[in-house]
Design a protein around this nucleic acid. Structure first.
Length: 257
DNA sequence: ATGGTAGTAAAACTA
């Protein structure tokens, strides 16, 4: 059975429907993990997904954060949050026996800000969640906007960005500790050593895509038994190049399970 | 060293 999975930081689902809905209709993935939906549950545009034959589960409180998973078949055992908090940053469930965790990891603001300490702690707690509730022998997908570019190859200017919260060494180390629990970077598996493979380009940087000024901060990670079954992974740049673009691209991975 | 844009929501905050 083919399993096609995608992750997309939508930066407001309501202002990104013109991208999300046609993309789903064309690509028909089994799962689309979304972050930064920026909408409270009562205003989530559920109907737009159902009209095209998708189920969708979501959690958001309004202006910030918000996560959702659209799926072809119903997601089972859906739950939210990390040890009782941040329900709008972590949503998980089970799809055809595959456990799925979709996260919007805190960005951290600045490395000398308490928000950055919170980001590091968040990743520490996430590792604890995997330790306690999952096994690396299972088929598990961890998808989302991790707000971490893991290696030098994953940012446009490693030296210049060394003190940025998404590339700072402590964030990368903490991310690595979660990875070491038992995840494989599925995109990197299919593109080893390939530079300039970015999933995010800041709106504020003029001609960012043309100039290659991006970051690889969105990821699809799989446990080894699942990663062994991956057949490809790619970054779909179209959302970043649309007439009304988004800052993030869509990351896709396919598995034969 | 700063500011650049986009989103929510109605001024400031987040990314």
């Amino acid at each position: 059975m083919r399993l096609k999975v995608a992750t997309y930081n939508v930066n407001s689902i309501r202002s990104r429907l013109h991208i999300v809905i046609p993309w789903l209709e064309k690509e028909r993935p089994d799962l689309l993990c979304m972050q930064e939906t920026k909408v409270s549950d009562d205003k989530f545009p559920k109907d737009k997904f159902e009209e095209i034959g998708y189920k969708v589960v979501f959690r958001g409180f309004g202006r910030y954060n918000g996560v959702a998973i659209a799926s072809k078949e119903e997601l089972e055992d859906v739950s939210f949050g990390l040890f009782g908090r941040d329900e709008d940053r972590l949503i998980r469930g089970v799809y055809k026996g595959v456990k799925v965790i979709n996260t919007y990891v805190p960005q951290g603001y600045k490395i000398d800000d308490p928000k950055y300490q919170y980001k590091l702690k968040w990743l520490e707690d996430l590792r604890r969640l995997f330790d306690r509730e999952y096994s690396p022998d299972d088929l598990i997908l961890w998808c989302g906007d991790m707000n971490v570019a893991p290696e030098e190859i994953d940012v446009h200017s490693p030296k210049k960005l060394k003190n940025h919260v998404c590339f700072h060494i402590k964030a990368r180390e903490q991310f690595k500790k979660v990875m070491e629990w038992g995840f494989v970077d599925v995109f990197r598996k299919h593109h080893p050593g390939e530079p300039k493979q970015y999933t995010f380009y800041d709106y504020r940087v003029p001609k960012a895509v043309e100039r290659g000024l991006g970051w690889r901060v969105d990821h699809i990670l799989a446990t080894k038994p699942l990663a062994e079954k991956s057949v490809n992974s790619y970054i779909d740049l179209k959302p970043r190049l649309a007439e009304k673009p988004s800052d993030h691209t869509i990351l896709v991975a396919e598995f034969e399970i």
